[in-house]
């Protein structure tokens, strides 16, 4: 087997609090081959963005990585900041969840997009800005309305997000991490951006790690999926297999809660507005995670043994060489959908 582009083995991200430490991410194992498309879904606060930031070497100051984190044979956990700078933006790039924090408010958008090509590829400013122009056109921000000299505050939320997408793909990285790349976009622009990412992956063999809560987007864009809950991967496998079975009760709850399900049903006349099926309770705070199944307090399938140990990410089946695993003692057997 060829070497994966990215490998996390028993990866944890720890945060020291006083004289104890807590694991924001706990013992994660994930591999990403070249040209693969992995989707990451999961509850707010489950650790999706922190996983991505760990790969980018951009963790909040106090957090530390434990375990293995290998990118193309390089151990990222041991990499010097200097070397990391050469990788970041060039070999790996990230579309951040909150555009306003990632864009520089006092720098014109053209210069922000061109920066990477000047820095990493040694292009002249003129060439890099030509490229920036092309990228802006591709993300649906054409000239002359969207000139390179606009500033981020002169753009709408979705337009800023698209500038950030252009910045991230400017150097055609090997690995693109997209953290909720289309959350601020209406569906027609979203479709355009997803098509753009699709073409880019096909043309350049780029690897995609797509973090999103939109199950429609994951199902359309990815081959493989990891469902995260409370800092752990609780189910992973081929996207189609996971969607068909949803072995982990949390994965089932996630789908049932989607407005694609309930919200789009016709509303019964006269009755009050139907409520969406939320999963009861809240995701445990990283400080208060129990030493047993972290979903137990919210799970409809819970049994006594669930509160005795932490379920391992066990193998359920293998399909086309890709393993389907779930961290549940009593995985749902029936298919949601054949």
């Amino acid at each position: 087997m060829t070497q994966p582009l990215l490998r996390m083995a028993d990866l944890s991200v720890e945060l020291p609090i006083g004289d104890t430490k807590i694991d924001i991410i706990a013992n994660t194992n994930l591999e990403l081959g070249r040209g693969e498309r992995l989707g990451i879904v999961g509850e707010s606060g489950s650790g999706k963005s922190i996983t991505a930031l760990a790969v980018m070497g951009l963790l909040p100051q106090k957090m530390r990585v434990r375990g293995e984190l290998i990118f193309d044979g390089h151990d990222l956990a041991k990499m010097s900041e200097e070397t990391f700078c050469k990788f970041r933006g060039r070999r790996m790039a990230m579309i951040f969840q909150e555009p306003m924090t990632a864009l520089n408010p006092v720098k014109p958008i053209g210069a922000q997009i061109a920066e990477g090509r000047i820095l990493h590829l040694g292009e002249t400013r003129a060439d890099a800005e030509k490229r920036a122009r092309l990228l802006l056109d591709k993300v649906g921000l054409p000239a002359p309305r969207f000139n390179l000299d606009l500033y981020p505050h002169q753009l709408s939320g979705g337009q800023r997000q698209r500038v950030m997408i252009a910045t991230a793909i400017a150097c055609e990285p090997d690995l693109l991490i997209a953290d909720e790349p289309t959350t601020a976009l209406d569906v027609t622009v979203q479709a355009q951006i997803l098509d753009l990412l699709n073409d880019l992956i096909d043309d350049t063999g780029m690897t995609l790690m797509l973090i999103t809560h939109d199950l429609g987007v994951v199902s359309e864009m990815t081959n493989r999926i990891a469902v995260m809950y409370a800092g752990r991967v609780v189910e992973t496998g081929r996207t189609d297999d996971v969607f068909a079975r949803m072995a982990h009760p949390y994965a089932r709850g996630l789908f049932a809660a989607s407005p694609h399900g309930a919200g789009l049903m016709p509303r019964p006349a006269g009755a009050g507005r139907p409520r969406l099926t939320a999963i009861p309770g809240v995701v445990p705070d990283p400080f208060e995670r129990p030493p047993y199944c972290t979903f137990a307090d919210r799970c409809g399938f819970v049994r006594d043994d669930c509160r005795q140990s932490m379920p391992a990410l066990d193998l359920l089946s293998t399909n086309e060489g890709i393993e389907h695993r779930a961290a549940c003692l009593h995985p749902c057997e029936s298919l949601v959908r054949p």
């Binding site: 879904v41 999961g42 509850e43 707010s44 489950s46 969840q97 909150e98 939320g157 909720e180 959350t183 601020a184 809560h213 199950l215 709850g253 996630l254 789908f255 809660a257 989607s258 407005p259 309930a262 009050g272 507005r273 409520r275 969406l276 099926t277 939320a278 999963i279």
Partner: peptide
């Protein structure tokens, strides 16, 4: 509310929307 739930995963989104409906009623 300008895109109040677009940064939320679907389960929290459902909770927040349900909450908004409760408050409305």
């Amino acid at each position: 509310a300008d895109e109040p739930v677009s940064a939320l995963d679907v389960s929290i989104q459902a909770q927040v929307l349900n909450l908004m409906m409760d408050l409305q009623e």
